[in-house]
Simulated scan of single mutants.
Amino acid sequence: MSTGPAPRPAARSRPKGWAIAAATTAGAVLALQAWVNGRLGEAVHDPVAAAAVSDGVSFAVLALLCPFLPGFRRGTARLAHRPGHGPGRPGAPVLRPWHFLGGIVGGVVVLSQATSSAALGTALYTIALVAGQSLSGLWVDHHGVGPGPATRADARRLAGAALALAAVTVPLLGSLSAPTVWLALLPFTAGIGLSWQMAVNGRLDAVAGTPYPSVALNFLLGVLVVAAALVVDLAVSGAPAHWPRDALLYSGGLLGVAFVLASVVLVRHTGVLVMGLAMTGGQTLGSLAVDLAADGGGRTGTTTLLSSAAILLAAALAARPPAVRQDEPQPTLPERQLT
């Protein structure tokens, strides 16, 4: 007796407009955080101390809020019993110990903001960040690291990744100064980790049933990374002698909480691909707006504008899923790719 073809997994529903708009806004928030942390690092002449303040504020806010967050304890208990095991309920992804390490990237991002954002300008910093993010997103989606199914790297996606790399290279070739190139490598490296961080956070969220445990874990690990850098910094340079009075310069931690919370909540509604595209657009446009408002666009030349447009196009190419034939079997999340 014929059993017929195997049933296909349910396709992901189309991303909702409100979720895409929220992800775009979250990208703009990240660009503003880069400007705030960069200016604080410049004001105290110590970017590591500035990063420590930003992450310290974030962690303090979350420590106060965690007892009141809905489902926080229940979600934390679910995560505590899942490492190295299968999903706790039907449809939940498998977790491995390394899925819990996304917060390390958060500490690296904050350090890169405080170290290089002021020197590069928010727009160029963001170009380098999202170029790394686009390249990493290609790998993350191809291997199904996030909570959704794997999406193969086709010619369109590879072209988008190549365009993203070219977009960050062109502005750097215009300056060709060694400090600029090395500074741009910091956000580029942080961007490579950012797509991976969003993917593993989405996986934790799917298992916990609530985003708050992964948000708290992210900032705990981020604080540990920045604290380790601060210990070395204090031993070498000592503590900053002067701190500015402008309260805005200390808001980077709050902006970071908003960004990470949004990224964890929205990934289940949009998927890693669409969220990355929306956040890239928000980051790019937000960084141009921040530079324009802060210094009248003095650092936003024609090359930067063209590179920003190229980044948006690269993200659109890389984020569009490949066409799937009706007779082609739908891929599921392979266990072997996660070990």
Rank of each mutant, 00 (worst) to 15 (best):
F72S: 04
P90Y: 08
G253H: 01
G137E: 05
A80Q: 10
T339M: 12
M1Q: 09
G107R: 01
G102E: 12
D246P: 05
R320Y: 13
P211F: 06
H142V: 03
G132E: 12
A162Q: 00
L333M: 10
A228E: 08
A216K: 01
P90D: 00
R156I: 09
A49N: 04
A161W: 02
A315L: 11
G121E: 06
F188H: 12
A153Y: 00
F59G: 10
P5H: 15
W18V: 14
A314T: 05
D205Q: 15
P211G: 13
L255R: 01
A11I: 04
A309Y: 08
L224H: 06
A278M: 08
R156E: 08
A178D: 01
A319G: 12
F100K: 07
G202T: 07
V94A: 13
A119E: 10
G91P: 08
A278D: 02
N218F: 06
P179F: 10
S287D: 08
A26F: 07
L261W: 13
W139K: 02
S307I: 09
T332D: 00
T76H: 08
A294I: 02
V44G: 03
A22V: 04
V181S: 06
G256Q: 08
A43W: 04
L129C: 11
R268D: 13
A247R: 13
D154K: 03
A323V: 11
A19D: 02
G121N: 09
R12D: 15
N201M: 05
T280L: 13
F188S: 15
S13A: 15
S58D: 03
S237W: 10
R14D: 10
S13F: 04
A208Q: 09
G38A: 11
L273C: 06
L230C: 00
L165P: 01
G86N: 01
S13H: 08
T300S: 15
A241G: 14
P70S: 12
G27V: 00
A278F: 10
S237Q: 05
G298L: 12
A216N: 04
V109L: 15
A318P: 06
G132S: 10
A77C: 04
A239P: 01
A258C: 14
L277V: 00
G238L: 09
A199E: 06
V110N: 08
A155G: 05
G271L: 11
V260P: 00
T189L: 15
P5D: 15
A31G: 05
L40Q: 01
T122R: 06
F100E: 07
T169F: 01
Q326L: 14
L163D: 06
R73K: 14
A166S: 10
V108N: 03
A289Y: 05
L285D: 09
T189D: 06
A51H: 07
F59P: 05
A239H: 04
A229C: 05
R320L: 11
A63Y: 09
D291E: 11
L277H: 10
P15D: 00
P5L: 14
W18I: 09
A314H: 05
A28R: 03
G252V: 02
Q33K: 01
A289L: 12
V257K: 02
L234P: 03
Q133N: 14
L32N: 02
S112I: 09
G222C: 07
F68W: 14
R336A: 13
L183R: 07
L111F: 04
A52Y: 09
W35F: 15
S175K: 11
A316P: 01
